[in-house]
Amino acid sequence: MIFLSNGVIVFLFIETLLLILLSVAFINVLTILKSWNFEATTTKQYILEKRSYLVLLIIFFTLSFKIILLPYFAYMIDTLSDVVPGAMCAAGVINANKYGVWLLWLKIFILFLVGIWIILNHYDLKAENYPFFKKKLWLFILIFALIAGESVLDILYLKNISTKSIVSCCSSIYGASGISNPIPFDLHVNELLALFYLLFTLSITTAIYRFKFFSLLSNIAFLYIAYYAVVYFFGTYIYELPTHLCPFCMLQSGYYYIGYFIWGTLFLGTFFGMSVSIIEYLTDIDLSRLFRYSIIFNTTFILICSTYVLLYYIKNGVFL
């Protein structure tokens, strides 16, 4: 019974607690949004303003924990691979039923929105008259709806992991089946790599020259291509095995948990690259300063990946 695994119990308990807290905030948000008027000097507005402190406190608290919970979720899934037959890493467990992949994507998307909310909140509190107050509450309602859906998916997913039936191992999920090319646009690995470095250059250039809209586009493309580049090229150097294609195995202790850094820096880099133009679209504030974080994290990501290839070449004198 997968529910008796220590990690799963703690995870579900925490998710439930956070959901309860968020529901409290959600009810308060509804009353605030209904009759919020910053210009008014009525008692009601005064009460609402007091209440908004509670709402912001709860939201900030829970969303910060949500950020910690995503890596923890990955770790938990990884440890479950000991219990689920056939699974060698998280890939097998994630694909144990149809909900897993959706859940993972939903969690990442929620994290993206949470990041935007936290930036928005930061700039809102800095300004004197809470200019984005309603916007961030609406954004919160969206996040809350998604998190509620996520909780349902959490239960559905974990409930349907069987400890009896055998799941696939990562090499059979991502491995070359020989029939069709798994890389998008039917690219060869060399072309994929060229595209990868080109898009990186593009995203850095747009960040330096602060072309906000192009930065959004180039970072989306970079995220997409970087995922494939890591799985189908850089991963093989991390595992030092040309046939080992997996985005999850690198999260394991055998590879010094490097996966968390790789995926973490990629997420942060592209997040800052994309969020600037999205936030500007929402609020009209100029956040070009955030581009430097995009540059820092994307470059770190590229450096980590390339170092593996370079070290392999120095050690062995050949490429894989």
């Binding site: 220590n6 990690g7 703690v10 308990f13 925490i14 607690l17 956070l18 807290l21 509670l54 406190l57 709860i58 608290f61 924990f65 910690i68 923890y72």
Partner: peptide
């Protein structure tokens, strides 16, 4: 795990 299991309920209760 322990830290999460203890700190989060603690902080959630005092908010």
């Amino acid at each position: 795990l322990l830290f999460l299991f203890y700190i989060l309920p603690f902080m959630a209760a005092v908010l």
